[in-house]
Nucleic acid binder design. Structure first.
Lengths: 242, 242
DNA sequence: CGATAGTTTGACACAGCTCAATAGGCGTGG
DNA sequence: CCACGCCTATTGAGCTGTGTCAAACTATCG
């Protein structure tokens, strides 16, 4: 009975019905029968904060959609210095087509829920459904734009501007349904101070000092180390440097 | 006569015959008749060092292949601070599909020769030839990998490591035919010290000091400010940090 | 041969790092 | 319920790598 209902409700698998990835993510490119095929091979699962999703130089044999939570993409130098090179939010696609191994490390920054499916299935669908590569190209280009924006932050901004830029990035991405006109914003930081430092190319101490500076200047309020209140996002924006 | 020969030599347009982009670039995805159609709408031209190819927030109506020379992609903050966010070498593709405006500035770092064609023609071909999007996706993912590698350099390396990393990048890209096993390498720097500084997130002076340091340590030799000799690339590599 | 643009070098200042101590939040166990 | 320990974050003091400002040097070109 479950299966019948599943297949018959407009041909959308139950698994996918409320999934963001079907609208804004890569699955939106699929025909109903393809979606069903992919859904059959998929499984939803939760990865706990701190657990590794993909190791550097590890074989990749699944792709995933991020359904909730935040994934951090990191790179590490041989002596241990680390840099976060990207954050992924729902409904981003996670995986690197056309390569067997990852050159990157993906780790759950918060508890993350994922919808994973075999690389081989997806790769096959990419060949029969050009719209899928189209979506992937769009996402790749957006990630490239984001990466290049962040390069400006890393290369040319001061510590104060970096921290403000980070808060702006989170404010923009954590709740996509928020009204962009609204001036007051509230969110939980998905990263520890150490992670923020690794994202900004700073030390923990500098991040902390810049946050307290924003606090004493009444640009933000912080509760429980993680929960941030911004009264007027334009004041924060002004400190981000752009 | 010219035209006949053109069309009949395996159907490869004369314009494209010796072009790298036909093998390693995006044009490799095209069928002969598509290549002919695109070649008809294309024109080769040379852009002088220092000239702008695409302005930030400017309409893009052509795509190009880089045939020779180096293009720098830059972003600028409102107060003038600048960051180079990418370098493009032959036979890279230049352009941003799916957006009317560029969020980036492209400028000829050296004299550059380009093969340009109307965006509309290419966009149409992308729809009838999925292989084209496939190639673009591959290039976009490589550029994304490169951008993320560079984020590590910007965020976590010292000035000395940054300069060594830059030299390694040029050595790797300037002459793709060079034997990767060969230890001695020679190349012309395609960028001024100011450009190098903008690429590394440093000042001109710091770049200069680090170069003299590499010079006095006999890792490199420099002639005429631009020509670099590396006796043993492994010694340079060791200074790049990875 | 002088003008111009790019580069190097020097002296000093300061943003951000290092090291160290303190404070706060939270779960565990008595 | 408090005490304890652990982990994360904050704050302080001093140091250092890189930036700033200024001057000298070098190549190129009319």
């Amino acid at each position: 009975m479950e299966l019948r209902k599943d297949i018959h409700s407009d041909g959308i698998p139950l698994l996918c019905e409320s999934c963001q990835a079907r609208h804004r993510g890569v699955c939106g490119a699929l025909e109903p029968e393809q979606l069903i095929a992919l859904a059959k091979a998929s499984h939803k699962h939760v990865v706990k904060e701190g657990e590794e999703l993909i190791g550097d130089a590890e074989r990749i044999d699944v792709y995933s959609n991020v359904l909730s939570g935040v994934v951090k993409l990191t790179k590490t130098l041989s002596d241990g210095r680390q840099q976060i090179v990207g954050l992924q939010f729902a409904p981003d696609f996670l995986g690197r087509p056309f390569r067997k191994e990852s050159s990157i490390n993906a780790e759950a920054a918060t508890d993350v829920s994922l919808c994973s499916f075999p690389k081989a299935t997806m790769d096959r669908m990419m060949q029969e459904q050009p719209g899928l590569e189209h979506r992937l190209l769009q996402q790749a280009l957006i990630e490239l734009d984001d990466a290049r924006d962040w390069m400006v932050t890393l290369g040319r901004k001061t510590a104060a501007e970096k921290v403000a830029s980070f808060l702006m990035l989170i404010a923009r991405n954590i709740d996509p349904s928020r009204d962009p006109e609204r001036r007051a914003v509230t969110f939980d930081l998905p990263l520890t101070r150490a992670d923020i430092a690794d994202f900004l190319g700073l030390t923990i101490e500098t991040v902390s000092r810049q946050l307290t500076r924003l606090r004493t200047d009444n640009v933000i309020r912080i509760e429980n180390n993680r929960h941030v209140f911004v009264d007027d996002i334009r004041r924060l924006e002004a400190r981000a440097g752009n």
